[in-house]
Structure formats: structure tokens, C-alpha cells
Design a protein around this nucleic acid. Structure first.
Lengths: 235, 235
DNA sequence: GTCCCTTTGTGAACCGGTGCACAAAGTGGG
DNA sequence: CCCACTTTGTGCACCGGTTCACAAAGGGAC
């Protein structure tokens, strides 16, 4: 029988909460560095840029780690969030595609600091295979399955051209990887049980452009008047 | 009085819809290249990786651009979405911070193709100022306000170290920019009316790690047992 | 021990977004 | 012209997530 912990810590933390935990963690680390021992939900919420009720509800999903009238113990909360996110273990990450972006990712400091270790760099271009980047030797894509197995890679970052992404994804999934961070501008088709997260630089800019256009429209006059589409009426 | 358009095209497209429009646009461009004249909501939905009812509802927010029994005219829909997103005009983007990431962004092809033009690169490090990257001369951060004004920059991409991001943000906002894409791992404080979008590589990985941990936990046995926290009971 | 102050944890209303399911609208064949 | 078929556009029920507001819990002073 499983020992019942302090309280209702069911399996199943809301996705929206999971996405904010790293934010809280970062804020807490800053506070720990500045020597704060405890922090209130209000202060932590401000530091993380969210509302304090939301923060408390988020933390309540992990357990009851605060003290009423006092706040949260910074170190203890850091430990709890880290453990929940799985950052107390070390994750081997492989980056496939060593173009400009892949290189930037390989050199990005934010990974190492959080339990992530870039364990391999792979590329199809014989020109870059053999290069040394961020202390790693770039290996040929043919080695993909072997490298994943040998180094215990469990997360793969795709920084390949769009055309190659699906086929690389298929291979890493066949090799047993179930977590992929995709920077290629394509919608990947993956089987049930594989987690994909997508980062798309151009989409982010397009969303900004939409709002920017709205703002300047509002300045200059009526909505959607200046650039009327003439053939719209005939539809 | 404003001429009433075909139908209920109120100001205010749901945020979730806006975030998907670029996805549809990309899928449509692929179809246009392959010579398709029309497409059904079902086919377009599959290509964009969403459900077809959602797609139809999204498009209905722009207007009634489909033909029942037939589908959507590919070219016409591309035009409508582009116009709605503001991609029919040309946006001057400045990238601040020319480290690994800034360089990768400057060379990223996905920007230019969509009405975005990298109009300036800026950095504080005298070592990189004067370098030529992606056909542009890297300018000193002291020139920030002048460059923004002179080149009509309306969107700024922050690729600086975390410590510098807030202060650069303050300056670009003071210079009149109201749209910022932030890659620095900090929560920026900005006044009302300024749009910030944040891309955080390390957060994405942490979310993947969370799910990956869940998956492997489920394999190996009980939830959260192997790594029990011994001091939890004393709280 | 009692009272007052602070801050957590959460019930409940609310809100935006999703997906089903179907009526309305259009096409094409005979 | 009419009927059978296709596909859009949307009303409605549902769901996850946010926010408010407050009771419960702990700390500290006296």
C-alpha cells in the first residue's frame, strides 16, 4: 500500500500550471541568490509576472508547502518544484541540425543550468560533421540511433530544415525517444504518447504584427477602411 | 458612417484564433505551390494539425470566405489571412543582442518570407560592433533610438543577456516601439499598451522533462516513490 | 492562553475556447 | 427544375482555467 502523503496530491497537474512552474522556479532562484529565506505568494507572483491567486492555486496542486501567516520557504519550494518538473535528474539532450540555430542552442547556457546536458550534436552535412562546437564533436546523422542508445538521450531538439524534420522525427521516435522540441516550421505527425513542443519564431512575429496593425489602425482612423479589398463585394 | 461589410466582422478576433492563423497560412502556401485551387476545411485542418470545426470557426471570424459544397479558394484565403495579420505591409524589425542567438535570428529565412525585414542589428560589445552579419552592419547600442526612428522600426527582437533585457526594453519603449519579442529569460515589466511575446527555450525543455518524467514513472512503478522526500513529513 | 494580524488554500462564479451536430447554402447530374 | 450530395457556418453544451473572496491556519505580542 502506498503511504498517503500530506494531502490530495493526485496525479494530474493542469497543463497551464506545469507551463508556469519553470517561471516560478526562476524567480525563486533569484530570491535564493539574494538570500531571502521565505517569500509570500504576493511577492513571488509579482516576480513571476502572474496574479497571486493563480500562483497559490498552482502551488496547491503540488501539495501544501506554504505556512499561513508566513509564506513559502524559498529553498524548500525550489526543491519541490524542481522535483516535480523532474530537474533533480540529469537529462541527456541531442540536437539535430547544426545550422545557425542549432549552434546557438548548443552554446545556450540556460540548458546546462537546469539539469539538461547537451549530449550530442548531429547533422547530415559532411561539411559540418567533425566540427567542434560547445565542446562537442558534431556527428553524422547516420549515427542517430546509435548515439541515442549509447548516451541515453531522452529528449531531442530538432533544428533541421523544414524538409528534413518529419523524417528525423520518425527515426528518433523509432529509436524510443518520446519528447521532442521542434524548431522546424512544420506540423509533425507523431504517434500517440509522443510529446511535441513547437517553437516557431516566424509565428511569434506574425502574432505581434497582427496586434501592431490593430494599434496603428486605431490611431489612424476607422477599422479596415484604408485598405479595403475591392473584390470583396462580389463574393 | 462606416460602410457595413458583408457580415458580422466585429473588431476582436479571439487570441487563440490569431495564434493559429499563421499555421493556416503556412499550410495554404504549401498548397498554392502545389497548384491547388480550392481546399476543404477538412483537408486544410489536417494539413495544419487542427480539428476541422475549429478551423471553420476560426475562419468565420475573418468573414465568410468559403463556398458551401466546394471549400475555400486557396489564393483568396491566403490574401485574406495575410491582410488580417498585417503581412501585406512590410515590417522593419531590429534585433538587439548579436550573440549566438541574435546571429541565428538574423540569418533565419522565415522572417523575410513573411513581410518582415531585419532592418538593424545592435549590440553593446565593441568587439562585435562593425561586424557584417546577414548583409547588415552591427551598430552600437548607443544608436538604438536613432536607428529605430530613422529606419521606422516597429518590432524589436530582444536577444540580449538577461541582465540587459529590461533596460533595453525601457529604451525601445521610450522610443515608441510597442511590440517586442523577448528571448531573454526574464519577466519584463512594461506599461499598458505594449505587447510582449516571450520565447524561452529552457522553459520548453522543462515542460518536456515534466512529461517525460511522468511517462517513465508510470513504467517503473508507483508514482513518486523511488525519490521520496524524507523531510516532507516534518512540515 | 487569548487576541489580532498575516497569509495560505480553496469553493464557486465566471470566461474564453473547443467540439458536436445540424440547418443553410451551394454544386452537379439528369 | 428538382433531387441528391457536399461542405460551410454556427448554436449550444461542455471543459479547463482564471479570478474573487473568504474561511481556516499559523505567528507573535502580551
Amino acid at each position: 500500500m502506498i503511504r498517503r502523503l500530506s494531502q490530495a496530491r493526485e496525479r494530474g497537474i493542469p497543463e497551464a500550471t506545469v507551463a508556469r512552474l519553470p517561471l516560478y522556479l526562476r524567480a525563486l532562484n533569484g530570491m535564493a541568490e539574494r538570500g531571502l529565506a521565505t517569500v509570500s505568494s504576493e511577492d513571488l507572483a509579482v516576480a513571476a509576472g502572474v496574479n497571486s491567486a493563480k500562483l497559490r492555486k498552482d502551488l496547491s496542486h503540488l501539495g501544501s508547502y506554504g505556512t499561513r501567516g508566513v509564506g513559502y520557504d524559498v529553498e524548500y519550494l525550489i526543491y519541490q518544484i524542481s522535483r516535480e518538473l523532474g530537474l533533480t535528474q540529469d537529462w541527456a539532450v541531442a540536437i539535430v541540425g547544426v545550422g545557425n540555430l542549432g549552434r546557438a542552442l548548443a552554446n545556450y547556457g540556460g540548458f546546462v543550468s537546469r539539469g539538461f546536458r547537451v549530449a550530442a550534436l548531429l547533422d547530415a552535412d559532411p561539411e559540418v560533421v567533425g566540427d567542434h562546437i560547445a565542446g562537442l564533436n558534431v556527428e553524422h546523422i547516420d549515427e542517430l540511433e546509435a548515439v541515442i542508445k549509447r548516451r541515453g538521450v531522452s529528449i531531442v531538439v530538432l533544428a533541421t530544415p523544414a524538409a528534413a524534420a518529419q523524417q528525423v522525427a520518425d527515426r528518433v521516435i523509432a529509436a524510443g525517444v518520446t519528447s521532442i522540441l521542434n524548431f522546424a516550421p512544420v506540423v509533425l505527425a507523431v504517434p500517440e504518447g509522443v510529446d511535441i513542443r513547437k517553437v516557431d519564431l516566424s509565428i511569434e512575429l506574425q502574432i505581434l504584427a497582427f496586434h501592431e496593425q490593430r494599434k496603428t489602425d486605431r490611431m489612424t482612423g476607422g477599422p479596415a477602411m484604408a485598405e479595403e479589398w475591392p473584390e470583396a463585394v462580389d463574393l
